[in-house]
Write a protein that binds this DNA or RNA. Structure first.
Ligand SMILES: [Zn+2]
Ligand SMILES: [Zn+2]
Ligand SMILES: [Zn+2]
Ligand SMILES: [Zn+2]
Lengths: 135, 135
DNA sequence: AACACTATGTAATAATATAACGTTTGAAAG
DNA sequence: CTTTCAAACGTTATATTATTACATAGTGTT
């Protein structure tokens, strides 16, 4: 029986915002969240943005930068959100978090000649999903 | 003697916007561009955003998504801008385009089980640059 | 000239995000 | 239990980023 565990760590607003994002099958925009939680008493952008910020820190959600939208973490790998990869369909706009060890190993250990040490990355792939490729 | 070649393909506004970005040592924001080109007769956001859009298509600039800012392409690899990678210092905010064959080969040939074929990607690494690591 | 295509100018507005302030809450220490 | 402190909250206003819509002007081709 999945989903028995509640999210006890989250504050009220954080939980409300997280629920919206988790239930959505697609990335959710901040103002779409705001609109949807008006009925729950959240009235102003800062309340949403503060919850988003915290949820990102906790690794429970990620921001899809190219879309200014937010998705729940599916990969349980990234409890602390520091290495994220997404595939984005250019037609239907479906976004999927990529959990691939070869990819994450490669990127986590990547170093270039600049001498910079990377603690964190975000990767967004664009292309056509299976469905959209067929049409 | 570098930079002899002018950008004959670019329209007036495109050239003006490109010059600003190319001369800057850091990513430039759209409204910063707008402010700086007022003296050249560009007065309104759409003029800037249209130029940016075209320059991106041409691969002459890239958008750094996590910063909503634009940089000139340094890598001459990406004439058609479809595979971009940046390193971003979390302290001084310096952004550098990464040109690394191992990285681009790996990402260009990446496939996961989703069956999605990727034509394009954007990767942003975060960390501390050499300078900021020392302090 | 007629056509298609790209680029431009301009006003208005939409969408995304943060600043600033004071108050409340909740856990932990004394 | 009360003091304390940090986190979370509520609210107003504002800043920042981006697009819509529509009219006009240049550019090259047939
Ligand atoms: Zn994740
Ligand atoms: Zn699709
Ligand atoms: Zn480039
Ligand atoms: Zn630095």
């Amino acid at each position: 029986m999945a989903n028995m565990e509640k999210e006890y760590n989250l504050s009220k607003n954080q939980q409300i915002v997280f629920d919206i994002i988790e239930k959505s099958s697609e990335p959710v925009k901040a103002y779409s969240i705001l609109f949807n939680v008006k009925k729950k008493g959240i009235k102003a952008p800062p309340q949403v943005y503060r919850a988003l910020e915290k949820l990102i820190k906790l690794g429970k959600i990620h921001k899809v930068e190219s879309k200014n939208a937010f998705v729940a973490c599916k990969s349980s790998n990234c409890e602390v959100s520091k290495a994220t990869a997404f595939s984005i369909c250019e037609i239907c706009e479906k976004v999927t978090e990529i959990a691939n060890n070869k990819l994450s190993n490669f990127l986590n250990s990547f170093e270039d000649k600049s001498g910079m040490k990377y603690k964190k990355y975000n990767l967004e792939f664009f292309g056509l999903c299976k469905k959209c490729k067929k049409t």
